[in-house]
Amino acid sequence: MKILFSFLPNPDQQVNLIEEFPNAEFIFQKPFDEETLKTADIFVTYGEDLQACHIASAHHLKWIMVASAGLEKMPLKEIADRNILVTNVRGIHKTPMAESILAHILSIKKSLPTIAENQRNAEWSKKVNSSELFGATALIVGPGAIGGEVARILQAFGVHTIGCNRSGESANYMNEMISFSQLDELLPTADIVLSILPSTTETRHLFTYEHFHCMKRTAIFMNFGRGDVVKEEELLRALKDECMAYAVLDVFENEPLPEGHPFWKMDNVIVSPHVSSHSSQYVVRALDIFTKNLSKWIEGNNRMENMIDLEKGY
């Protein structure tokens, strides 16, 4: 059994894998060699380096482990045609991303950007527009593992949490649930609107100017899922029209955000360069899921964690 990694775990992690699975041949290559992929049974990747042409020539490939939650850059149709199993690391982002999201919310609520600017200007000013989280309403669009963790922490601050997904079915730590079709009705009630949606045909450009226009003028809009969930020119228009107080953006339609993009200079936008999930524990948690699944794979157990429905893309 040949297992090809297209990223490099640290040397100790590589040794641990080799020792735990002595009958497997591990190959660590960044970038990976296409000839090696042709003979690999399992491919472990972040997902952005795999093309349709690779699938066509990888005749032995049976399982792709994606060390990321997003799959939108992968050739899913070609993978499905070959009936190759795909798993990912859904769930490992919840701690670092929840911490990042809460840090941004508290920073805005407690006027930390203004306080920092005053310090740079050596200005002693108590004229800051701080407010409380207590009693606020947060609308969390995409209330999966990350959204549930954010909601759990927000509830500790006395925030009312509303989850929104395609079905309206219940999700953890949500005081109430709605479906996508009810989004227009609840947006005017929310003080924080957080999108953690994946990129799918159903979610692409889900948020339009009309959605932003019906939000509270004091609301914070946050996108920490995928950039194409938002139609960027319509968000820009809404920000110029002051349809909301702030937009906190960790993801964008085109990354990296171009140098001359208006978002860089706007006072009511916080640009986070897709770093909310960064953590020293990222690879540790990813490998933990992989090793559990590899043990099941070797045993012939097909009930593996985070199996992907390739038709849905998640």
Rank of each mutant, 00 (worst) to 15 (best):
I79G: 07
I196C: 15
F221Y: 13
E149M: 14
E25F: 06
Q281A: 07
F28A: 03
L249Q: 11
V248G: 07
M177T: 09
K38E: 10
E234M: 03
K110E: 07
A56Y: 00
Q29A: 02
A138N: 04
K292V: 14
S280T: 06
N254W: 04
H93P: 13
Y314P: 12
G168S: 05
R90Q: 08
D184S: 09
S295G: 14
R90F: 13
S167Y: 03
L310S: 07
P262G: 08
N172C: 10
E34V: 04
I105S: 11
A98C: 15
S195G: 14
H213A: 09
K94R: 12
T208L: 10
N23G: 10
G147Q: 10
V66D: 11
R204E: 15
A245P: 08
L76I: 07
T137C: 11
D12F: 05
I27T: 12
H274Y: 01
A103Q: 06
M74R: 02
L186F: 06
H261V: 07
D81P: 10
A136V: 01
A151H: 01
V89F: 00
T45V: 05
H160Y: 15
S130F: 07
L37F: 01
A80I: 06
E185Y: 04
H60A: 05
V193N: 09
K231A: 09
L37A: 04
V128H: 02
S125G: 15
M266F: 01
A151R: 00
S195C: 15
V269C: 14
E34T: 07
N172R: 13
N165R: 00
I196A: 12
V44Q: 02
A69L: 05
M1D: 15
A190R: 12
N175G: 15
E72S: 11
A238P: 13
K62T: 04
I55P: 11
I140A: 03
V271P: 11
F224H: 08
L50V: 15
